Amino acid sequence: MSPYTIDYLPPVKPSAIALGTVFNHAANLAVLAPVFGETYRRAQHADSKEEFIKSREAASAAALYGSTLVGSGIQTYAVAAILNHCGVLSYKGAAYVGGLIFAATSMPQLVSQVFQERRPAEMVAVKAAVNLVDTVGLSLFLTWWGTRPAHDLLR
């Protein structure tokens, strides 16, 4: 064994990471669609493609798109690793673990938005729905696809 291996990171099937990233990224883009729609309208009204590409809006949209893609990949790996570590094989177990991840990562912010920031209920509900898809939905999707690498299945 090489001294440079990272043995403490749980193995996850690469296809699960790839498909989970696409699943999670699509859910995030559904929420970000108004941002990209406005950017697209500005691109249509720009005098030239070069002018728009050099604009602040294009740079901001590209950074947002890239960061959500990278974040989706990291989140997918983390959820899959948790599912593997917990030994989850059923949809019920995946929903339970996804619900716990949702409670740990999203509930504090949602409660704060409702009671402290007094955000509109519709906005909080949309945010909660997206976070449920990002956690419970992703857990269920990954359980359906399978997250264990082939060498772990042989043990």
Rank of each mutant, 00 (worst) to 15 (best):
M1D: 12
M1G: 12
Y4V: 12
T5D: 11
I6W: 10
P10L: 07
P10G: 01
V12Q: 00
K13E: 11
K13V: 05
F23H: 01
N24S: 13
A26K: 02
A30E: 09
A30V: 12
L32A: 08
L32I: 07
A33Q: 11
P34I: 09
E38Q: 14
Y40T: 11
R41V: 13
R41E: 14
K49H: 15
E50F: 11
K54E: 15
S55C: 05
A61Q: 03
A61E: 04
A62P: 08
A63L: 13
L64K: 03
Y65A: 13
S67A: 09
T68Y: 08
V70G: 06
T76R: 00
A78W: 13
Y91V: 11
A95L: 12
G99N: 02
G99I: 08
S106Y: 04
V111P: 03
E117G: 00
R118M: 11
V124E: 01
A128V: 01
V130F: 10
V130W: 09
N131M: 08
V133S: 05
V133H: 02
D134R: 15
L138C: 05
S139R: 03
L140V: 11
T143N: 07
W145V: 10
G146F: 02
P149M: 00
P149W: 00
A150C: 09
D152Q: 13
L153I: 07
